[in-house]
């Protein structure tokens, strides 16, 4: 993988390290990155995007703890062979937390009763 595959938007309300993790997650889910693919080094990413290397390390660390990436001795980071089983259900739910928070906030702002929203959500999940 090349550092240019990532896009960084410094002005966005989402911190850069989260932007990186989010993109890795999508790239892996979408199949652009397969298991065992090597990731660019922290330095490469930092130099390409002119961002602080510590931000990149933080993103890689977070992705590693989520099980997206695995550290290979002497080679750097690579996409983990199996991502799903290493994560408990609670861990996976935690990933959804920001979206759930946003959803509940919007629902409150629209003054929608909880049961209506839940029913609709349930139907979406079943499909």
């Amino acid at each position: 993988m090349d550092a240019s595959l990532l896009t960084i938007q410094p002005g966005s309300a989402e911190p850069i390290y989260r932007q990186i993790v989010e993109q890795l997650r999508r790239l892996i889910a979408g199949g652009q990155l397969g298991a065992g693919d090597l990731l660019p080094s922290v330095r490469e990413v930092a130099a390409f995007h002119a961002i602080n290397p510590m931000t990149v390390s933080r993103a890689y660390g977070m992705a590693e703890s989520e099980g997206l990436l695995a550290r290979l001795r002497g080679k750097g980071m690579a996409v983990a062979a199996t991502t799903r089983p290493t994560q408990t259900q609670a861990q996976r739910l935690a990933l959804l937390e920001p979206q759930l928070e946003a959803l509940s906030r919007h629902a409150r702002e629209l003054e929608l009763p909880a049961d209506v929203v839940l029913r609709r959500l349930g139907r979406l999940l079943e499909n």
Binding site: A47, I51, N52, M54
Partner: peptide, 12 residues
Amino acid sequence: ELLREIALRAGE
């Protein structure tokens, strides 16, 4: 270029 130089020096 300047930002890159700053970032890398700080990081490395």
